[in-house]
Each structure stands twice: as C-alpha cells, then as structure tokens.
Amino acid sequence: MQNLKPILEQYPDGKREYLIPILQEIQESEGYLSQKSVIEVGKYLNIPTSKIFGVATFYNQFRFEPQGKYHIQVCRGTACHVLGSSTVLHEMERILKIKAGSTSRDGMFSLEVVACIGACGLAPVININGEFHAKVTAASIQQILDQYKNTSPVDSEENQSNS
C-alpha cells in the first residue's frame, strides 16, 4: 500500500461526507481499495470500517482486489445481453474460476462487468486491456484467454497492479 497522506491531506477537517471522494482517489491511485487503506480512511474520518465497506460495496465502481495483469471487461449492455453476453460472462467465470469483480489467484486476469461500452455493433463484446474482442461466444473464450496467457501484456506498466 502506498502512503495515503497526500490524498487525506486534501481533506483536512476529516468530515464524513468526504468518504466517497477519498475512496475514489485511492482507487484512482492504487487501482483498488486495499484493506489497509480502508482501515486508514476509517481512522482518519472516524468511521467504522464496516460502514466504509458498506458504502463502497453499494457502488459498482469500487474494487477490493488489485486488477489482474489482464483486466477483462464484459459488456452487459442491452445489445450484448440480447446476443448472449450472460452466457459469455458465465463461461468466463467458469474458466477463470472467479466471480465478476475479482482477480484470479495467479494475478493474471481480473473480471469486471460493465454497462454498455458503446460498441453495440460488435456485440457481444469484451475488452481486455483496451483491446476489443467482437462477437464473442462461449466457445471462443478459451482461445481468447490463451492468447493472453502466452504473451506479455501490451501496456503492462499502465495496467499492472501495484500490490
């Protein structure tokens, strides 16, 4: 975990209403909300960590695990849904043995569900580290993932977790 001081210092009077902006900044800089960060924010704002976790899990935007080497976004927008993105997501979860919102144990892949990413013509679409994969089917997922397993990430520095 990095030092949270520069972030917390921007909110010198430590009021409760700063909770969400603080969490957003931490996620921005760390990529996720670590246990230690949550504890430190709790101390700073004098809010029990259970409450912080309650607030953070209410919103889809917060992550509690570092992103994988490859971050997979599965689009669950309307067009993708109609063309079978729920099967894609389930197959993805099955192969990676993780649920959406978490990261595989080896740190290679993390999975996220997103609403429409504006590529409805390519539905069902997934995005892996910025690369789009069009018309994905349950059958094609293994092949796509294998592709990444065997290569180094395109822009590893940007996406690699700093845990």
Binding site: Q35, V38, P48, T49, S50, K51, I52, F53, G54, T57, F58, F64
Partner: peptide, 28 residues
C-alpha cells in the same frame, strides 16, 4: 458503539456483513 456489521452490497445482493466480508472473529 461497536458497529462491526453493516449493510453491504446492494439490491438482491444485499447482505449484512462485516468489513470485507471477513469472519466475525477478526471483526471488532
């Protein structure tokens, strides 16, 4: 004055839970 549990997650996934969904034994 302990507050070791709270509502977590949302909608049909809502669950009363501890911080990070950990066991009660390591909560406060």
């Amino acid at each position: 004055g302990v507050a070791c549990i709270d509502f977590t997650y949302r909608g049909s996934k809502s669950i009363i839970g501890t911080t990070f969904g950990k066991g009660l034994n390591i909560s406060s």
